[in-house]
Write a protein that binds this DNA or RNA. Structure first.
Lengths: 117, 117
DNA sequence: CCGAATCCAGGCGGATACTG
DNA sequence: CAGTATCCGCCTGGATTCGG
């Protein structure tokens, strides 16, 4: 019990909630989708148009992933309209990310030194 | 038209602090390194042994990236020893991630959480 | 309007061997 | 001990086309 070596095992890698979460929403488009859905619900093409540069393919994949995580709900309206919205869990996460965004914005110039907007 | 369309442009994608942060530390090994360095400083091979499954190559790359972000400091001791530590900024981020981990663990049903110490 | 299917390039990350 | 260098598989993500 003298020198205690903490080992981050592969099990830990899979088990650590924050690691999983970061890998899930740390992809290219999830944050943009979450941000848009935070204000109001959107249709598919509406999201497609609003997120500059995204492909329909990746929008589909991103939405499916967020849906699987219970962060986004998908409700077909007419046969021509599908509505995507943040679930309560999604809104909850959004708040957390918002807090993280406060931190990031505050320490941004010092660390990543990219042009502040 | 009075319908206001919020567009997440490519510029926004680059500018959004939280998006950049998530993409930076949302990689495979950064969280593990941050967690280990949160408790105490480590040498290179010490980290290598402690993080199960990581290759020296990826450990180097991860450390360099964290160093570039100002989250980790690298201080050569002897010619045979280099010490890695979390910077104050790194500790600051670690606290934020810990809070996020609390949230993740609560909504995850996960077994292990980020043990804060 | 809302996707699915296919094809393809680039980057992330692993394995291995070598250096000071 | 603390890395580099090289090769390579795989997965992410973009472009395009097709279907309901």
């Amino acid at each position: 019990m003298s020198t205690e070596t903490v080992v981050v095992s592969a099990a830990d890698y899979d088990a650590c909630p924050v690691t999983r979460l970061l890998r899930r929403i740390g992809d290219k488009w999830s944050p943009a989708v979450i941000r848009l859905l935070a204000t109001r619900t959107h249709g598919f093409n509406e999201l497609d148009r609003s997120i500059e540069g995204i492909s329909r393919r990746m929008l589909t994949r991103t939405l499916r992933a967020l849906e699987d995580d219970g962060l986004v709900s998908r409700t077909p309206q007419a046969s021509t309209r599908v509505e995507y919205a943040l679930t309560p869990l999604g809104h909850s996460l959004r708040e957390q990310l918002s807090a993280l965004g406060q931190w990031a914005a505050a320490h941004d110039g010092a660390t990543l030194s990219v042009d502040p907007r």
